[in-house]
Computed example of a mutant assay.
Amino acid sequence: MSRVTVWHDGNCPLCRREIALVRRLDIRGAIEFVDATGPSTCPLDRTEMLARFHAREADGPLLSGAAAFAAMWRAIPVLRPLGEAARNRLILSVLERLYLRFLRMRPHLKGGLSRREARA
């Protein structure tokens, strides 16, 4: 079983929800989740780590954006076909464009979730 390390923004309510879902799907325990806002060691500058999603498969290169999501998906049996499909450069390119659009919307989505959590 290949181990994947995923760095995430533990201060982001949207990221916390997504990581919670992935933890539930990771029934084999193949993913190590690292909160990049905590005292952990980051392979890049912390600001850079928090600007985009990052992951590393086993001893492979550090991946970011859609490639990092694909690596994470490959570690989860139910999502593995999507992660494998992303090995195709065309599919990965489309996923990266979608990820870049998401990054532009992320501050607005984060703000909405933060307000909702504050009311709860």
Rank of each mutant, 00 (worst) to 15 (best):
M1P: 10
M1E: 09
M1D: 11
S2K: 06
S2N: 12
T5L: 08
T5P: 05
V6P: 00
W7K: 02
H8I: 06
D9V: 10
D9R: 05
G10A: 10
G10V: 11
N11T: 13
C12H: 09
C12D: 15
L14A: 15
L14P: 00
L14G: 01
R16H: 09
R16V: 11
E18T: 11
E18I: 07
I19D: 02
I19Y: 06
I19C: 06
A20D: 12
A20V: 02
V22Y: 15
R23P: 07
R23M: 12
R23Q: 15
R24C: 02
L25T: 06
L25M: 15
L25V: 07
I27D: 08
I27Q: 13
I27W: 12
A30L: 14
I31R: 10
I31P: 07
E32N: 15
E32I: 14
E32Y: 08
E32P: 06
E32F: 09
F33G: 04
F33I: 07
V34L: 13
D35M: 12
A36P: 11
A36M: 12
G38R: 13
G38A: 15
P39Y: 06
P39I: 12
P39F: 08
P39R: 14
S40Y: 14
P43R: 09
P43C: 09
L44D: 11
D45S: 10
R46D: 04
T47F: 05
E48D: 13
M49I: 10
L50R: 01
A51L: 10
R52C: 07
A55F: 05
R56F: 08
R56E: 05
A58Y: 01
D59Q: 14
G60H: 07
P61F: 03
L63N: 00
L63E: 07
L63Q: 06
G65N: 03
G65I: 05
A66R: 00
A66W: 00
A67F: 04
A67L: 01
A67E: 05
A68E: 00
F69W: 10
A71L: 03
A71W: 03
A71N: 04
M72A: 13
W73P: 00
W73C: 04
W73N: 03
R74K: 15
R74V: 01
A75C: 11
A75I: 11
I76H: 07
I76D: 06
I76E: 05
V78C: 11
V78P: 03
V78E: 12
L79P: 04
L82Q: 04
L82K: 03
L82A: 14
L82P: 00
R87D: 15
R89K: 13
L90D: 03
L90F: 13
I91D: 00
I91H: 01
L92C: 13
L92S: 12
L92I: 05
S93W: 12
S93H: 10
V94G: 08
V94N: 04
L95P: 00
L95H: 01
L95Y: 10
E96P: 03
E96G: 02
Y99R: 02
Y99K: 02
Y99S: 01
Y99Q: 01
L100A: 14
R101T: 11
R104D: 07
R104A: 12
R104N: 03
M105A: 14
M105T: 02
P107L: 00
L109E: 07
L109V: 14
G111Q: 11
L113C: 07
L113A: 12
S114R: 14
S114L: 14
R115L: 10
R116S: 07
R116M: 10
E117S: 02
E117Y: 06
A118R: 14
A118K: 14
A118W: 09
R119G: 03
